[in-house]
């Protein structure tokens, strides 16, 4: 990441110094403020969902959810702490419900709970791959945008999208098994 990021930025800056020197700094500052505005948006979403999840945790619902899907979680992630199991169950549930933004804080909590070294563990890699291959049941954002752009049938992409995301998630999980072996 260090080398890729630095070389891309250096090459682009040099190119812009020749083509559009006055615009270069503007782009840099705009990127920073874009980072801040996205972080503020995230903060709002986190506030809501971390609050709601804290309530769910207090009435032991998270533990119940985790024990219901305990078998699958054990097969996918191996032996992890009950707390991490709860966060992962929440993460997958919010992904499936299409509350994509709610899945982020629970995944972060799970990662914090499971990862202690500088090297990502098998369970962490599994959680990341499952999230990074997108496991949404209904792509609400895309269907909404299609409708607003005047599509005759905005929802006709739901089936191919579902097949596609299922296939990539299964492939991703298979690759984690291939790369890291069976969960201990």
């Amino acid at each position: 990441m260090n080398i890729v990021w630095t070389s891309v930025v250096v090459v682009c800056l040099v190119a812009m110094a020749f083509s559009n020197p006055s615009g270069a700094l503007t782009v840099c500052v705009q990127s920073m403020s874009q980072g801040i505005s996205v972080a503020v948006e995230l903060c709002a979403v986190y506030c809501l969902w971390m609050g709601v999840f804290a309530v769910a945790e207090k009435c032991l619902l998270v533990e119940k959810l985790a024990s219901v899907c305990g078998g699958v979680l054990k097969w996918l992630f191996g032996s992890i702490s009950p707390k991490a199991k709860g966060y992962i169950a929440l993460n997958v549930a919010s992904n499936l419900l299409g509350v994509g933004n709610a899945s982020t804080p629970s995944a972060q909590s799970a990662i914090k709970e499971m990862e202690h070294g500088s090297k990502l563990s098998r369970a962490g890699a599994m959680l990341f791959v499952i999230n990074a291959t997108s496991i949404q049941l209904v792509p609400t954002t895309v269907v909404g945008l299609r409708a607003s752009c005047g599509s005759a049938n905005p929802a006709d992409i739901v089936l191919p999208t579902l097949l596609c995301t299922l296939a990539t998630t299964v492939l991703g999980v298979a690759f984690v098994f291939l790369g890291y072996g069976v969960a201990k």
């Binding site: 891309v8 682009c12 800056l13 615009g23 270069a24 990127s31 874009q34 996205v38």
Partner: peptide, 16 residues
């Protein structure tokens, strides 16, 4: 986030 947006925006703005 800021670092990532910097890279992506520079790539687009510079034409590379």
């Amino acid at each position: 986030l800021s670092a990532m947006f910097l890279m992506v925006n520079l790539l687009r703005a510079s034409g590379i």
